[in-house]
Computed example of a mutant assay.
Amino acid sequence: MLHPEENPWKTTSEQIVYDNPWIKLTEYQVINPSGNPGIYGKIHFKNIAIGVLPLDNDLNTYLVGQYRFALGQYSWEMPEGGGIIGIDPIESAKRELLEETGLKAEMWTEIQRLHLSNSVSDELSILFVARGLRQFEAEPEDTEQLMIKKLPLEQVYQMVCKGEITDAMTVAAVLKVKLLLIENKL
């Protein structure tokens, strides 16, 4: 019998179904944990998902609003983007914060690493809090049509609790920062 943390899946074959600069989709022929044949699809992300919750001295934060093609709807979320694997994630976080909001920060704290959909993808997310903010000019990518809102963190927390913010990285970061503030750890 396998140890509970050992892989019970057996791969019999694999085929790349789709591949582009951002993702690769592979279909696996498998023997599942019960011993039966099956298939499993996995999306491999070629970048790290980076999220930054900027927090000023008055506990205000900045949300970025944009239409999300994959969802088919508008989304309010913290500044986010892709970080190239092999580059220090903090550098990607700094780039995303400046790009989307025009903000630069003096202090950076990594607050969370999480997998965004561990049933179908291997996407890793790294979340940061940025403090000591200074305003510069935003530099959005040509694929981004962004709106920026400066809001009290408490209001953003209430938006998360009411389900008005559904972006997983933003929800996780806001809840984590709220907890850190309650525990005087930030």
Rank of each mutant, 00 (worst) to 15 (best):
residue 155 Q to S: 14
residue 85 I to G: 02
residue 97 L to I: 02
residue 144 E to A: 07
residue 119 S to W: 12
residue 66 Q to E: 14
residue 57 N to H: 13
residue 99 E to Q: 09
residue 123 E to P: 01
residue 151 L to G: 06
residue 86 G to R: 05
residue 125 S to G: 15
residue 159 M to P: 01
residue 91 E to G: 02
residue 92 S to H: 03
residue 87 I to M: 12
residue 161 C to G: 00
residue 62 Y to L: 12
residue 134 R to Y: 12
residue 86 G to T: 10
residue 51 G to N: 07
residue 170 T to S: 14
residue 145 Q to K: 15
residue 60 N to P: 10
residue 156 V to H: 06
residue 67 Y to T: 10
residue 128 F to P: 00
residue 112 Q to L: 13
residue 150 K to W: 01
residue 51 G to H: 03
residue 135 Q to E: 12
residue 48 I to T: 11
residue 102 G to L: 09
residue 142 D to R: 10
residue 133 L to G: 06
residue 170 T to L: 02
residue 121 S to C: 10
residue 115 H to T: 10
residue 51 G to M: 06
residue 145 Q to H: 10
residue 77 E to T: 02
residue 154 E to G: 10
residue 76 W to N: 01
residue 46 K to D: 04
residue 70 A to T: 14
residue 137 E to R: 07
residue 150 K to E: 03
residue 75 S to N: 05
residue 159 M to F: 13
residue 127 L to W: 05
residue 156 V to F: 07
residue 124 L to A: 11
residue 153 L to A: 08
residue 139 E to V: 14
residue 164 E to T: 01
residue 158 Q to S: 04
residue 68 R to A: 10
residue 86 G to A: 10
residue 145 Q to F: 12
residue 51 G to Y: 01
residue 173 A to Y: 01
residue 76 W to K: 03
residue 153 L to C: 13
residue 74 Y to H: 15
residue 152 P to S: 06
residue 77 E to Y: 05
residue 157 Y to D: 00
residue 117 S to I: 06
residue 49 A to H: 00
residue 115 H to C: 13
residue 154 E to I: 09
residue 106 E to D: 15
residue 49 A to Q: 03
residue 126 I to K: 09
residue 137 E to I: 08
residue 94 K to Q: 09
residue 148 I to H: 10
residue 52 V to C: 14
residue 120 V to D: 03
residue 88 D to H: 13
residue 111 I to K: 08
residue 149 K to F: 05
residue 74 Y to S: 10
residue 58 D to L: 01
residue 73 Q to P: 00
residue 166 T to K: 06
residue 121 S to G: 15
residue 160 V to A: 08
residue 108 W to A: 07
residue 154 E to K: 13
residue 86 G to M: 11
residue 129 V to I: 15
residue 120 V to Y: 12
residue 92 S to T: 06
residue 90 I to Q: 11
residue 70 A to Q: 14
residue 98 L to T: 03
residue 129 V to P: 05
residue 78 M to W: 13
residue 100 E to K: 15
residue 173 A to M: 08
residue 143 T to E: 02
residue 145 Q to A: 07
residue 73 Q to Y: 07
residue 66 Q to H: 13
residue 62 Y to G: 05
residue 95 R to G: 02
residue 83 G to H: 01
residue 56 D to S: 12
residue 143 T to G: 04
residue 52 V to Y: 01
residue 115 H to V: 15
residue 64 V to E: 10
residue 126 I to G: 06
